[in-house]
Design a protein around this nucleic acid. Structure first.
Length: 928
RNA sequence: GGGCGUGUAGCUCAGCGGGAGAGCACCCGGUUUACACCCGGGCGGUCGCAGGUUCGAACCCUGUCGCGCCCA
C-alpha cells in the first residue's frame, strides 16, 4: 500500500469546503488500512486486556460481485465491528471467499469453449491450473468492492477455501467423519444437473411452479376390448415410462385388486411389469395406479426397494435417453417426452391429457430442471450432526435474532435429509478416498501418504458448502490449536438473510459442534464463552426489494447495483439507507431517492459541523456536564444523553433501523432545526457586543456545548457513516483530539437525569416560534423579511428574566425586529405556554388577510372542541373513572383543562376577528 | 399442505392497550451569510375485513381474505 497524500502529511486535515463523498471515501479508507486499525491482535485477548468480538463473514463467491444483499449484510457487520472496536473490544473480522465449484468451473469452461477447447482436452491438472490462473487475473472482484463499502476487515488474514490451510481442515474433518461412519458412499436418487453434469444437494435445487401436462396412459395388452387386463396410469414425464419396472396400486383399492400380483405389458419397450400393492400409493389421485420408475423418482425408488424391483437408468449424464434399446435412444429428455407421447398416441394408449400445475426442481446454478437420478455418490449422514445443531439452539448456546426466526431454523434442521457432498467436477477439494486394485477403499487423512501402485483416487470433488461450513474455524487455523482460536472461537455473531439461513448457519453449526465436540465446555477459551458452537448469535435480516416492495430479479429488470449508487452518492449514503431500513427479520424496500435522502443527511451534518467550526466550536473535556448551562444547552445535552443511551441499547439488541432512525432525528430535527438556531442567539449577541463579558461568557459556553455535542454525535454515527464522520471529526477535535474516529471511544451512557425545566423551556420556544411562523405564513409575509414587533405580553407563570431569554430566542428564530417609529400592531398572535398565555403583536405593514386568520383560528378551534368533547366523554364515563389507572384519568383531566382554555382563547380570537355571528359559527367553521 | 413473516397517509415503513407518526412524493411561500443536497408553512389515514375481550383496541384473542419468504 502506498501512502496517500494525507498519510504522508502529518499535519491536521482541514475541513473541505463542500461535501464530496467521492473525494474523501477512498483516501480515508486507505489511511485506515495503512494505519492498521483493521487488524486484530489475539494477544490482547489472551492477556485479558480486551474482550474479543469476532464476526463470521459468510464467504462470498470468488466469481461474484457485490450485490445489494451483500451491501446490507456487510453494512450491518461493519456497524457491529466498528461499534465494538470503539467500545474497546478486540475485533476480528476476517475476509475471504469460497471457490464456488460449479460457478467457477462453468465460467472457465465457457472461456475454453469460446476458443474451441474443453476441460477434457486440457486434462485435469492443466484445467485446474487454468482455473487458478483465472482467479489470479479476474477472481475476487468483490474484495475491492467490500473495501469501497468501507468494511473494516483484517486484510492480512484473507482466506480462500482452497488454500492449503483450509484444505487441510477439509481433509481432517472428512477423515474424522468417514472413520466414524458419518460419511458414506451409496447409490441413491440424487438431484442431477444435466447441464453441469454433476450431482447437487437439496439446497441447490429451487422448486418452481410450472404448467405441465398430466398424461394418462393405458398399460396392458395391445388388444384389450373390455379393459380388464389393462391399467391406467398418469404421469407428467411420459418419457420415463421407458424405465418403468412396475405399476403400483393401494392394497385396499378394489378397482385394481384383480391385477395385483399379475403383470401388464409395458408399451413400446415390450416388457412385462408387475402390478404391486403399496401402502404409499394415494388411491384418490388420478386412477389410483401409479407407474414406478425406481431409477428416476425418489418415491418410486422407495417402492422399488420395498418390492425388490429392477432399477433401470434410461439417461446419459446429459439426460439424453440411453440404453433403452428403443428408437428414442439419443434423444434429449424433452424431445423424448414429445416423441414417446406421439408414439403412444398412435398406439391408442393415451387415455387423457390435461394441463397440470406442479412444482419442478430447478438447478439454482444453471436454472434447468434437475433430473432425479439413481447414482452412486458420497453423503453426510446428518441425523446426529443436525440433532446437535438443533440442541445447541434449544439450549441457548446460540441465539437467533429475531427469536421468532428460530422456528424456521428448527423446521429445517429437524427435517434434514442426508447431504450429497460429491460433485462431478474438477475444481474443488478432491475426495481423499483411494480405491485399490482388489476393491479396497482407503480414506487418506492429512499428512498421510496416499497408497501407491494400482490405487486410484476418487475423481469427484466435495461440495463447496462442505468447506464453507468449516469457515468459522478453518480460517482460524483449525485443526491446529492456535492462539486465534483460543482468543476468538466461538465467534460472536453471524449476520445473514433469513432466506438463506440454512446455507450457512446449519452447516457451520453442524461442523463447528462436531469439530469442537471434545472441547464443548470451552475450557481453553478465555472469558465467559462456553460451548463449541461456531457463533453466539445469528442475526437475520430480510430481503432488499425494489421501491415497490417487489423482489429484485434479472427477469424483472429491477436489480440495483449498489456500486453505482456508491459512486454517485457515497458509501456512507448507501450504508445509512440500508441500515435505516433493517428492521429485524423484515424485508426492506430501497430506491435511489432513499439513497439520495441519506446523502442529503450527510450533507446536513457536514454543514452543521462547518457552521459550528466557523463559529469557534471547541471540544473540551467535561463541557457537557457542568451545571452552568443555559436552558437550550441543558436541553440539547439531555437529549444527547438520551440518544447515547438509546443508540447503545438498540445496537446491543441488533435494532439497526431504530438506531439509525434515532440518530437521523436527533441530528436533523433537534440539533440542526432547534439547537443550532438557538445557538445563534448568544453567538450573534457576543459578536455584536465584543466588550460585554457576560455575552462573551455565554458564547463560550455555547461553543463548548456545540463542540461537545457534535463530537459525541459523530462518534455515535461513525459505525453507520464512517467516512463523513471521520472527515468531520478530525478537524473538529483538533490535533490533540485523536488520530482517528475509528479508534476513538464510544460515548458513555451517563446517568444524569434530564432537566424537565429545560425541556419545558424549549417546548415553549417551539410553540411560540411555530405559532408566529404560522401566522406569518398565512399572511404571506416572506420568511426572510424582518417584521417589527412591539411589546410582548408575558405569561403570568414566567419570571421576567426567563421571559426575556425566551423572547430573545423567539424573536431571532422568527425574524421579528423591534418596534420602529411608525409601529402599529396589525396582527396579534396568542400562544399558550407552560406558564400561561403569551401575546405577540406584529406590524405586517399593510392590510391583514382576515379570512386567513379566521380560517386558522377555526381550524384550531375545531381541533380544540374535538379534544374537549373527547375528554368530557371520558370524564363522564363512570366505568372509565372507576377502572382506569389514576394516571390515565389525570392525563384526561389535564387535557380537559387545556382544551377548555384553548376553546376560550380561540373563541375570543374569532370574536375579535368579527367571525362570530352566532353560536354555531365556531363549531361549524372547521370545514370552511 | 406445513413453518415463519406481513397487511397503517399516493409510495416505503415505524408504532403493537390510553391524544394516528416518519421518510419520500404532492401543494403554497422563500437568493433567511451552516445547508436550495436547503428553510418555513400545508394537504393527506372508517390502521385489510368480521366478530370477541376490555372502562378503553391500530395494538390482545378468534375467524376470514390478500401478499411475501422458505419447506414439502
Amino acid at each position: 500500500m502506498t501512502a496517500t497524500p494525507e498519510t504522508a502529511d502529518q499535519g491536521q486535515p482541514e475541513l473541505p469546503a463542500k461535501y464530496d463523498p467521492a473525494a474523501i471515501e477512498v483516501p480515508t479508507y486507505q489511511r485506515w488500512r495503512a494505519a492498521g486499525y483493521f487488524k486484530a491482535d489475539e494477544q490482547r485477548v489472551l492477556s485479558g486486556e480486551r474482550r474479543p468480538f469476532s464476526i463470521v463473514l459468510p464467504p462470498p463467491n470468488v466469481t461474484g460481485n457485490l450485490h445489494v444483499g451483500h451491501a446490507l449484510d456487510h453494512t450491518l457487520m461493519d456497524v457491529l465491528a466498528r461499534w465494538h472496536r470503539m467500545s474497546g473490544d478486540e475485533v476480528l473480522w476476517l475476509p475471504g471467499m469460497d471457490h464456488a465449484g460449479i460457478a467457477t468451473q462453468t465460467l472457465v469452461e465457457k472461456q475454453l469453449a469460446s476458443v474451441g477447447s474443453s476441460r477434457e482436452a486440457l486434462g485435469r491438472d492443466l484445467f485446474v491450473q487454468r482455473v487458478w490462473d483465472w482467479k489470479a487475473e479476474s477472481g475476487g472482484a468483490i474484495l475491492g468492492q467490500m473495501a469501497r463499502l468501507g468494511d473494516s476487515v483484517d486484510w492480512d488474514r484473507e482466506r480462500f477455501t482452497l488454500d492449503d490451510g483450509l484444505s487441510a481442515a477439509v481433509q481432517t474433518i472428512f477423515k474424522q467423519l468417514y472413520d466414524e461412519g458419518l460419511i458414506y458412499r451409496a447409490e441413491r436418487i440424487i438431484n442431477w444437473s444435466p447441464v453441469g453434469r454433476t450431482a447437487l444437494s437439496d439446497i441447490e435445487v429451487d422448486h418452481v411452479e410450472v404448467d405441465g401436462e398430466l398424461v394418462s396412459l393405458r398399460y396392458g395388452p395391445d388388444d384389450d376390448p373390455d379393459g380388464s387386463a389393462s391399467i391406467v396410469v398418469a404421469t407428467t414425464r411420459v418419457e420415463t415410462m421407458l424405465g418403468d419396472t412396475a405399476v403400483a396400486v393401494h392394497p385396499d383399492d378394489e378397482r385394481w385388486a384383480h391385477l395385483i400380483g399379475r403383470t401388464v405389458l409395458l408399451p413400446i419397450v415390450g416388457r412385462e411389469i408387475p402390478v404391486v400393492a403399496d401402502e404409499h400409493v394415494d388411491p384418490a389421485f388420478g386412477t389410483g395406479a401409479v407407474k414406478v420408475t425406481p431409477a428416476h423418482d425418489p418415491n418410486d425408488f422407495e417402492i422399488g426397494r420395498r418390492h425388490d424391483l429392477p432399477m433401470i437408468d434410461i439417461f446419459a449424464v446429459d439426460a439424453s435417453v440411453e440404453g433403452t434399446g428403443t428408437r428414442f435412444d439419443g434423444m434429449d429428455r424433452f424431445e423424448a417426452r414429445r416423441e414417446v407421447k406421439e408414439e403412444l398416441r398412435r398406439q391408442g394408449r393415451v387415455v387423457d391429457e390435461r394441463v397440470h400445475r406442479h412444482a419442478v426442481g430447478h438447478s439454482s446454478r444453471t436454472d434447468e430442471p434437475i433430473e432425479p437420478r439413481l447414482s452412486t455418490q458420497w453423503f453426510v449422514k446428518v441425523a446426529p450432526l443436525a440433532a446437535a445443531a438443533s440442541e445447541a439452539v434449544r439450549r441457548g448456546d446460540t441465539a437467533i435474532h429475531p427469536p421468532e426466526m428460530a422456528a424456521r431454523y428448527f423446521d429445517w434442521v429437524d427435517n434434514m435429509h442426508d447431504w450429497t457432498i460429491s460433485r462431478q467436477l474438477w475444481w474443488g477439494h478432491r475426495i481423499p478416498v483411494w480405491y485399490g486394485p482388489d476393491g479396497q477403499v482407503r480414506c487418506v487423512g492429512p499428512g498421510e501418504e496416499p497408497p501407491g501402485e494400482g490405487w486410484e483416487q476418487d475423481p469427484d470433488v466435495l461440495d463447496t458448502w462442505f468447506s464453507s461450513g468449516l469457515w468459522p474455524f478453518s480460517t482460524m487455523g483449525w485443526p491446529q490449536q492456535t492462539d486465534t482460536l483460543r482468543a476468538f472461537y466461538p465467534t460472536s455473531v453471524l449476520v445473514t438473510g433469513y432466506d438463506i439461513l440454512f446455507f450457512w448457519v446449519v452447516r457451520m453449526m453442524m461442523f463447528g459442534l462436531y469439530a469442537f465436540r471434545d472441547t464443548a465446555d470451552g475450557a481453553s477459551s478465555p472469558g465467559d464463552r462456553t460451548g463449541a458452537v461456531p457463533f453466539r448469535t445469528v442475526v437475520l435480516h430480510g430481503l432488499v426489494r425494489d421501491q415497490y416492495g417487489k423482489k429484485m430479479s434479472k427477469s424483472r429488470g429491477n436489480v440495483v447495483d449498489p456500486l453505482a449508487w456508491i459512486e454517485e452518492y457515497g458509501a456512507d449514503a448507501v450504508r445509512f439507507t440500508l441500515a435505516r431500513g433493517a428492521n429485524p427479520g423484515t424485508d426492506q424496500a430501497i430506491a435511489e431517492d432513499w439513497v439520495k435522502g441519506s446523502r442529503n443527511f450527510a450533507t446536513k451534518l457536514f454543514n452543521a459541523v462547518r457552521f459550528a467550526m466557523g463559529n469557534g466550536a471547541v471540544v473540551r473535556e467535561g463541557a457537557l456536564d457542568t451545571d452552568d448551562l443555559a436552558p437550550a444547552d441543558r436541553w440539547i445535552t439531555d437529549r444527547l444523553r438520551a440518544t447515547v443511551a438509546a443508540t447503545t441499547r438498540l445496537l446491543e439488541d441488533f435494532q439497526f433501523a431504530k438506531a439509525a432512525e434515532g440518530l437521523y432525528h436527533f441530528i436533523w430535527d433537534e440539533l440542526c432545526d432547534w439547537y443550532l438556531e438557538l445557538a445563534k442567539v448568544p453567538l450573534q449577541t457576543a459578536a455584536a457586543h465584543p466588550d460585554d463579558t457576560t455575552a462573551q461568557q455565554a458564547a463560550a459556553t455555547t461553543r463548548a456545548v456545540l463542540g461537545g455535542v457534535l463530537d459525541t454525535v459523530l462518534r455515535l454515527l461513525h459505525p453507520f457513516m464512517p467516512f463523513v464522520t471521520e472527515t468531520l471529526w478530525r478537524p473538529l477535535v483538533g490535533p490533540d483530539g485523536g488520530e482517528s474516529l475509528m479508534i476513538a471511544a464510544w460515548p458513555q451512557d451517563a446517568d444524569r437525569p434530564a432537566d424537565p425545566a429545560a425541556q419545558a423551556w424549549v417546548d415553549d420556544v417551539i410553540r411560540l416560534v411555530t405559532e408566529i411562523r404560522r401566522a406569518r405564513a398565512d399572511q404571506r409575509v416572506p420568511a426572510s423579511r424582518s417584521v417589527p414587533s412591539g411589546e410582548w405580553t408575558r405569561p403570568d407563570g414566567l419570571s421576567s428574566a426567563a421571559w426575556a431569554v425566551l423572547e430573545a430566542a423567539a424573536r431571532t428564530l422568527t425574524r421579528l425586529g423591534p418596534a420602529d417609529a411608525g409601529y402599529r400592531t396589525s396582527l396579534t398572535v396568542t400562544v399558550p405556554l407552560s406558564g400561561g398565555t403569551a401575546t405577540v403583536g406584529l406590524d405586517t405593514s399593510g392590510v391583514i388577510d382576515v379570512e386567513a386568520e379566521i380560517a386558522r383560528a377555526r381550524k384550531d378551534l375545531g381541533a380544540a372542541e374535538q379534544e374537549l368533547a373527547e375528554a368530557e366523554r371520558k370524564l363522564g364515563n363512570q366505568n372509565f373513572m372507576q377502572r382506569a389507572k389514576p394516571e390515565a384519568v389525570q392525563k384526561i383531566r389535564d387535557r380537559h383543562t387545556q382544551a377548555l382554555a384553548d376553546v376560550d382563547r380561540l373563541t375570543a380570537r374569532l370574536a375579535e376577528l368579527g367571525a362570530l355571528t352566532g353560536p354555531a359559527a365556531g363549531s361549524g367553521g372547521q370545514s370552511a
